[in-house]
Amino acid sequence: MLELRLVQGSILKKVLEAIKDLVNDANFDCSATGFSLQAMDSSHVALVALLLRSEGFEHYRCDRNLSMGMSLTNMAKMLKCAGNDDIVTIKADDGSDTITFMFESPTQDKIADFEMKLMDIDSEHLGIPEAEYEAIVRMPSSEFARICKDLGTIGDTVVISVTKEGVKFSTRGDIGTANIVCRQNTSIDKPEEATIIEMQEPVTLTFALRYMNSFAKATPLATQVTISLSSELPVVVEYKIAEMGYVRYYLAPKIEE
């Protein structure tokens, strides 16, 4: 028996919008720790890891570990039917091939339930060890989204380089080139507008912008994004979900031929 009640149901709506374009089908794992997912895109270039910790739910009952295969497209369709202020409850019985999403309006005058078919999915889990990153950039998520969108109109790839001067995003396309430098800005009055660069070593890596723009769909989840870079490692783009967990995207860099 599984029963998870989330008063701030809009978080789940935003999570689905943040991952459904990258991954079509995925197994959601439910355990005492929380509600989680790890999935790769179909070309195995990018990976998304989601964690919603059990403590973040108003009610969390998960009698045994469960892995439930879902079409993220269909799950997003169902969650779109929930109001932004609705309380969302996820329910599943042991051995059932369906999951139920219940939406309650804040005043309890409207209650809806949507039952969705589960599916069998063969998924490949990767072990991602904790790593020390050479550079960690924290910046406003909206700024990062804007940069990826702008550069995506000019080129297909972005070169991200972190030096003592700041973080530089560069691209090159048929019409020309673009460079955007963001300097450290430890805005004390407005921490959500700060850009903070922790650098052990200068690092330069190249990534496909298409994926970065897909990651930026998580922008409504967090005011800040953390970008962790090391040469020879996938970049980690993390959006923290307040009090609950995170959505992390891993993207393999472009490598020399």
Binding site: M40, S43, H44, V45, A46, L47, E124, H125, L126, G127, I128, T157, T206, A208, L233, P234, Y250, A252, P253, K254, I255, E256, E257
Partner: peptide, 14 residues
């Protein structure tokens, strides 16, 4: 030129 890396080139399945 650069080639697109794959997650399997960096992390192991378990």
């Amino acid at each position: 030129g650069k080639l697109q890396g794959s997650m399997f080139g960096f992390y192991e399945k378990y």
